[in-house]
């Protein structure tokens, strides 16, 4: 049996009758860097809030470290082992950097003074400065510092690089990967920046309308998905039914574009059996997979 740090089964949650999660199944293994992707309103933040114990699911199960998150006492124990960066990057406006560190430290028995010092220096955060006087980028870095220094086994990062400039994003991502390698920390992070996800994640999950539509190892997914470009010499009636590995078919004039998930050989043969057609198979990027999953169907 695999050791999942996060595991949800048929997780459902709605707000005033509006479904946010509709049977979400999610598995994040220990040590993985898991990129959680989805459009605005797809259910990413709802999932994260449920895992942290801020929201209660309507049905289904969610476990972190094998502990169900439903019960408040257990949720407190889970939170002691988690580092969390919130989407809004808001902290107490009446505290300085130094004060928020002093405040947060005692809650976490595994607090890492060495990491605190290291990242305080790397992120160049002025200890005496009040939080409202920090730029958005600096607040993002401070939140990361607070999350990393907890000595957490799992980092849940909701848009961690939001507000950072490209150079800072590069630095932060580099540090996160280094941390994951050095400490074996599991990372579960949501982002709209597909290039970031592609840069550091080894596993991804794409959520759409509260359901997981793609999940697995990034390399496997990229190897599995192919785009077929079919050029028709004459207008031909295309089959209405394809093998289940064809995720979509889109025709523009004589050019047909197909997204294939799995073995494309069979489809290529099927297409080539039609008279006067040429077919080419291309690897596709994470961005293509994402876009096709969330709007292509």
């Amino acid at each position: 049996m695999r050791d999942f740090v996060i595991e949800t089964t048929q997780l459902a949650k709605s707000y005033k009758g509006q479904p946010a999660l509709q049977g979400l199944n999610l598995e994040v293994g220990r040590g993985q860097i898991f990129g959680f992707l989805g459009r605005n309103g797809a259910g990413k933040t709802t999932t994260i809030k449920t895992l942290i114990g801020i929201l209660k699911a309507d049905s289904g199960t969610a476990c972190v470290f094998g502990i169900p998150v439903t019960d408040e006492d257990r949720s407190v124990k889970i939170r002691r082992r988690i580092g969390f960066v919130t989407e809004d990057k808001e902290l107490y406006p009446y505290m300085t950097v130094e004060q928020i560190l002093r405040f947060t430290r005692p809650f976490f028995p595994n607090w890492r003074e060495d990491l605190e010092k290291r990242y305080l220096e790397i992120f160049d955060l002025p200890p005496k400065r009040k939080i409202p006087d920090l730029s958005k980028g600096m607040r993002s870095k401070l939140m990361l510092l607070l999350a990393i220094s907890r000595g957490a086994e799992l980092l849940i990062l909701d848009e961690p690089t939001d507000g950072l400039d490209p150079a800072a994003i590069e630095d932060v991502l580099h540090e996160l990967v280094a941390l994951a390698e050095a400490e074996g920390t599991t990372m579960f992070f949501s982002s709209h920046q597909l290039s970031e996800v592609e840069m550091i994640a080894d596993h991804i999950g794409i959520i759409d309308q509260g359901r997981m539509v793609v999940s697995g190892s990034l390399n496997d997914i990229k190897a599995r998905y192919r785009r077929l470009r079919v050029v028709l010499e004459d207008p031909v009636e295309l089959p209405t039914r394809w093998a289940s590995c064809v995720e979509y078919v889109r025709q523009e004039g004589k050019v047909v574009s197909m997204l294939v998930n799995g073995n494309d050989e069979e489809i290529i043969q099927q297409v080539q059996s039609m008279p006067g057609t040429t077919v080419e198979s291309f690897p596709i990027t994470l961005k293509d997979i994402f876009l096709e999953q969330v709007r292509g169907k």
Binding site: I54, D73, V76, D88, K89, E90, P93, F108
Partner: peptide, 14 residues
């Protein structure tokens, strides 16, 4: 000024 609620609720405190 309610943004830091999520930070507060993410602390291991009931």
């Amino acid at each position: 000024l309610h943004g830091s609620m999520l930070f507060t609720l993410s602390l291991p405190v009931s």
